[in-house]
């Protein structure tokens, strides 16, 4: 059974998203991407450069300065930990790999960290920062909501003229709401093909894209 996903029930029909709303949310995604780049080109690069300066200091420390050298090594490890935390933050703002390589590589990289098997079918094609960002986080939230031991999930990303088509199969029909939250502000439309059992449903989103 295919049905158009709607937050509301009965006579209360979904309001179409206005052009102004779409533009506002597109800008929001661009800002997120910009913030992530700023983290990379600013703070992260400075900290990496600091580890080099510390290495130089270690080299110049007196040969009998083992204590100093150990201390510098510890500082470098600490800076690595700081960078790892920044990477975590960057990934939640706008994943760098999504920015640089697109949905296919970014989704494949992230599903590799999950226990449950997820297949990703996506070409190298690009869709613009807003549609890609919304699709990426929609998939992530959907996968995070999957119960432990759920059967395999399949994610397909494809272009349909000026629309990004995202399909997530093998998920609960209720997950449509998670996907809808991400894609609706951009004028996206979500459909649900309810499976049997309901945990084997397919959610299809179509998002206007660049």
């Amino acid at each position: 059974m295919v049905s158009r996903f709607s937050h509301r029930t009965g006579d209360d029909v979904d309001e179409p998203v206005t052009e102004a709303c779409r533009r506002k949310h597109q800008d929001r995604w661009r800002r997120r991407r910009l913030l992530q780049r700023q983290l990379h080109d600013g703070a992260a690069l400075r900290i990496s450069a600091l580890t080099l300066r510390l290495g130089l200091l270690e080299h110049r420390a007196a040969p009998d300065g083992q204590a100093v050298q150990d201390c510098i090594g510890e500082l470098q490890d600490e800076l690595h930990a700081v960078l790892e935390e920044l990477r975590d933050v960057a990934a939640q703002i706008y994943p760098p790999l999504l920015d640089e390589a697109g949905l296919g590589p970014a989704l494949r990289e992230v599903v590799a960290t999950l226990q449950a098997p997820v297949a990703v079918v996506a070409s190298e094609e690009r869709f613009g920062p807003a549609a890609e960002g919304a699709a990426y986080f929609a998939v992530l939230q959907c996968l995070a909501a999957q119960p432990a031991g759920a059967p395999s999930t399949k994610v397909v990303v494809r272009r349909e003229i000026d629309t990004l088509m995202l399909s997530v199969s093998g998920v609960d029909a209720f997950h449509a709401e998670l996907i809808d939250d991400q894609v609706r502000p951009l004028g996206g439309i979500v459909e649900v093909i309810t499976g049997s059992p309901p945990g084997a449903s397919t959610v299809i989103a179509r998002i206007p894209c660049e």
């Binding site: 900290i47 580890t51 290495g55 080299h59 990289e109 590799a112």
Partner: peptide, 27 residues
């Protein structure tokens, strides 16, 4: 990222390396 590792290994599988910037900070 493994994505880049695979791309790097497509360029070559000899005399090639991939390291994090903050991990080469010692002589």
């Amino acid at each position: 990222e493994s994505h880049y590792l695979m791309r790097i290994l497509e360029i070559g599988t000899e005399s090639i390396g991939y390291r994090l910037k903050e991990k080469v900070g010692s002589v």
